[in-house]
Design a protein around this nucleic acid. Structure first.
Length: 468
DNA sequence: TGAAATGTTGGGGCG
DNA sequence: ACGCCCCAACATTTC
């Protein structure tokens, strides 16, 4: 009787799971395993919001496995040692997993693979997270892409959505000792997660429900509605995608079947996700270093802890920035347009290095994803490849008036400003008496002056040796 | 997936 | 009717 371990990581689903399907196809019994080893992802070990999601998602996976006669075997500690130990205990001859395309896990998996093979345990890994392997798409000169549009043209042309693999109906397993999900200590000790509980449903079933809601209700008007933070015009699939509760191929497959104006636009957003992974794979240092080295000499402002704190807490005095930061704190998520605004404000108006923002997002986002987070911050800061030019500085007042015209988004997350009308809610300081009554702070910084200062910093780079 | 400064145009009020 | 000016609307340039 042959046994295989299926090592779950960022693929917490049963449907369209190639490692699981392959293991079942070749072995009589499979042992589903999750090893909690946050240090192996350092310095980008999962943040607090991610850990909350992970806890719930593991619990959901365990339930789904139990309903099929199996269970998730949960362990904490060194991945290799745990797998080797489990393989010996279950007499498993093979370990199957789906790849994680981040620098630390990639290196770790290579070590695990070599060590397991050295003791006679077969290993096989699969792509379950991306539409295309990060190394598969290259420019004509065989180099990685640095510009999104040609990358996307290439990927879009070769993309052939395929039907998802079915979830196994029954999972013959071998029972071995296991820890509990609770023992991993993923939930916060201070229970700040009530708002997350109310909004999210981690796990494969929750991902399925989110996809169906999006296809039924939102995708038709996606092109325009995706920019309006006060409505549910986006898919909110990002955390489900990050933890692999649903595969991008499954989404592409459904989109191909949908008859809708918004589907190509949404597919393009999946393309940005792919591009982020492509960049992270080819530029693994980009998690901590500017992709454009010219910005290594940018005159960032001296770190101002109190200003950073006010940005984090949503007390900058700029309504749409604060609304976004409070939405993040309360829900573990922020609307994409608002992410760009708060990032522009931090890196350009406050002139703080994008890493300060990336680290805060890393800790507070339930969809914190190393590839997307890195690319998103470098894009907004202007330090990336194919990034927003540094001089493209958002004016949060103009942006608020354009994309939150009625002010409902601000009213929802900054209730102090609820009494302001649509004409002034994005610039409450123009009515000093009402502002004082509201208790809302005056702006942390002058938008026009700080914009000018940021541009002057940029000028100093250009004169030195041309950042473009 | 900008914003602000500057330039251009054309309608309309007015002497 | 005409020239002049104002200014909104739009276009271009610059960062």
């Amino acid at each position: 009787m042959t046994v295989a371990l299926v090592w779950f990581r960022r693929d917490l689903r049963l449907a369209d799971n190639p490692a699981l399907s392959a293991a079942l196809a070749s072995h009589e019994r499979v042992v589903p395993v999750y090893v909690h080893a946050p240090r192996e992802e350092a310095p980008w070990s999962p943040g607090a919001a991610s850990r909350w999601w992970l806890h719930r998602s593991l619990a959901a996976l365990d339930r789904d496995l139990r309903s099929r006669g199996s269970a998730l075997h949960v362990h904490e500690g060194d991945s290799l040692a745990t797998l080797r130990c489990l393989a010996a205990a279950t007499d498993a001859r093979a370990v199957y997993w789906n790849r994680v395309y981040e620098p630390a896990p990639l290196a770790r998996d290579l070590r695990v693979e070599q060590a397991l093979r050295a003791v006679g345990v077969h290993t096989r890994s699969f792509n379950a997270a991306l539409l295309c392997e990060p190394w598969e798409i290259t420019t004509a000169s065989n180099a990685p892409y640095r510009v999104f549009t040609p990358y996307w043209r290439n990927l879009r042309a070769r993309l052939q959505p395929r039907p998802p693999l079915p979830a196994p109906k029954h999972l013959p397993t071998s029972a071995v000792a296991t820890s509990t999900i609770e023992a991993l200590g993923l939930l916060p000790r201070i229970r700040w997660d009530a708002g997350l509980d109310a909004l999210w449903r981690p796990g494969e079933a929750g991902a399925e429900a989110a996809l169906q809601r999006f296809l039924d209700e939102a995708i038709g008007d996606y092109g325009a509605a995706r920019d309006l933070p006060s409505i549910s015009g986006t898919s909110r699939l990002s955390p489900h995608l990050h933890f692999g509760e649903i595969s991008p191929m499954r989404i592409a497959w459904e989109l191909e079947r949908a008859r809708s104006d918004g589907k190509e636009r949404f597919l393009r957003e999946l393309g940005w996700r792919e591009f982020s992974h492509h960049l992270l794979f080819h530029f693994p240092d980009s998690t901590d270093h500017n992709l454009n080295p010219a910005f290594d000499r940018y005159p960032w402002a001296r770190i101002a802890p109190r200003r950073l704190r006010r940005w984090q807490q949503g007390r900058t005095g700029i309504p749409i920035v604060d609304a976004g930061m409070r939405e993040l704190w309360a829900t573990g998520w922020m609307h994409n347009r608002v992410r760009m605004l708060v990032a522009s404000f931090l890196t350009k108006n406050l002139r703080h290095h994008w890493l300060h923002g990336a680290r805060w997002f890393w800790d507070t986002l339930v969809d914190a994803d190393l590839a997307n987070n890195t690319q998103g911050w470098q894009w907004t800061a202007g330090t990336g490849v194919d990034a927003a030019p540094y001089f493209r500085i958002f004016n949060p007042v103009t942006q608020g008036e354009r994309f939150d015209a009625d002010g409902n988004y601000v009213r929802r997350w900054v209730p102090e400003l609820a009494a302001f009308d649509a004409r002034s809610i994005h610039r409450p300081w123009t009515d000093p008496a009402a502002l004082r009554r509201s208790g809302y702070p005056t702006p942390l910084i002058d938008l026009a002056a700080s914009r000018t200062a940021a541009l002057e910093g940029y000028q100093s780079l250009r004169h030195a040796n041309g950042a473009s």
